[in-house]
């Protein structure tokens, strides 16, 4: 991701390059990307909200949701935001080993969440809710599946960041790279809070 910005950051003092906003290019781009992602999830959530009660066949949402189980996996995901904050703070202090430790823990927590989701999906399918069963089935799997893919991509990013820091192959400012991954990670968490509330907690 580090493009001319890297260069600008590296040589800022040397050449007097400053960005007009004060934000680095990478960070501004990440914020714009997340802004765009809001609309992506907005569309998916709207689709789910439109269809959530429409069950022509198969189980009704409230009949199959296991709220305690999903609450625990949601808690695990939220805790990963905390460890992500600790990773960013370690990176800003320049403490590589701590950064890697917290990034790895964050990735493990994220993977646990994804694992929980896989378990939940298989349980639902066993109970008769297939992808094609009903409008509720299609929109539920699409929305939570999209979120699951986002978490998985995040886990991949976290582990890659650990690898790159270890091999010392990072092409940007280390703290900034960790922070950018963190921005993405927190966004994915926030989206889950909304999905959890709308999909699981509010009865349809």
């Amino acid at each position: 991701m580090a493009e001319t910005a890297t260069h600008t950051a590296d040589h800022a003092s040397e050449h007097g390059h400053e960005t007009s906003t004060g934000l680095t290019n990478n960070k501004l781009a990440m914020w714009l990307f997340l802004g765009s992602e809001c609309l992506l999830f907005g569309g998916l959530i709207s689709t789910y909200m439109l269809y959530r009660g429409r069950v022509s066949d198969g189980p009704h949402p409230m009949a199959i949701f296991d709220i305690p189980f999903t609450s625990i996996s949601s808690f695990v995901l939220l805790m990963s935001s905390l460890t992500m904050v600790l990773a960013v703070s370690s990176a800003q202090r320049g403490d590589d080993s701590r950064t890697n430790l917290w990034l790895t823990i964050t990735a493990v927590l994220g993977a646990t969440f994804v694992g929980g989701q896989v378990y939940e999906f298989t349980a639902f399918i066993r109970e008769g809710l297939g992808f094609s069963t009903s409008l509720f089935g299609s929109s539920f799997y699409t929305l939570t599946g999209f979120h699951g893919i986002h978490v998985s991509v995040g886990v991949l990013m976290l582990l890659s960041t650990v690898g790159i820091i270890r091999k010392n192959k990072i092409t940007g400012t280390k703290a900034e790279v960790v922070e950018l991954v963190g921005l993405y990670w927190h966004f994915v968490d926030v989206v889950w809070i909304i999905i959890f509330t709308l999909v699981y907690l509010i009865p349809s």
């Binding site: 609309l39 992808f131 009903s134 409008l135 089935g137 299609s138």
Partner: peptide, 26 residues
């Protein structure tokens, strides 16, 4: 930036319907 993700959602829904048996427009 703010309109493309919306059509992406529509395209994904249509793709899932046509290729993977989803029911969004059934």
């Amino acid at each position: 930036v703010f309109s493309l993700p919306v059509i992406t959602v529509a395209l994904v829904l249509l793709m899932l319907q046509r290729s993977y048996g989803a029911t969004f427009f059934d």
